[in-house]
Amino acid sequence: MSTVELISPLTDAERNEIEAEVAHLPDRESAAIDALMIVQKHRGWISDESLRAIAKFLDMSAATLDGIATFYNLIHRQPVGRNVVMVCDSVSCYVMGADSFAQKLQDHLGIKFGETTRDDCFTLLPIVCLGACDRAPTMLINEDLFGPVTEDELTEIFSRYS
């Protein structure tokens, strides 16, 4: 197998968005995080193939880029479901009962933190303080912030996502 086959090429949309970032930076490598976020937005996560394609496009080594990708909490190096649920486990939410809320949430979705539901609808992850501590306990579904959330609201909230 040649290495070419291991690289799934970036789409035109992805290339254009990354180039727009590169345009105002001193060099291509400086766009590494932006590029990872852009490709993740389109593909949901960063596969090895995506990683190699981005590295090639930015003229940097895949190893260096992986060191960056794995450093950041918001870059997924494993597949995630169609919706990502992030639950705050930091101190203000903890004080307001986040631990028991997190337990109920896992029971509700039938998965543990780090897992994805069998229908691929939800991936459940812990997250640090979401900066909405006056609304504790909080969670983020994709780009939507919820808080304070109670167990009773879960069915209704999750029904909004497919």
Binding site: I33, D34, G67, I68, F71, Y72, N73, L74, V128
Partner: peptide, 26 residues
């Protein structure tokens, strides 16, 4: 311009922030 962080608390430390801004590990 806005740089959106990839998310790590340490990126708030100003020199880690600068590395992250440059697209590196924070």
């Amino acid at each position: 311009r806005i740089h959106l962080s990839g998310g790590r608390y340490i990126c708030g430390e100003e020199t880690a922030l600068l590395n992250a801004l440059e697209g590196k590990r924070g």
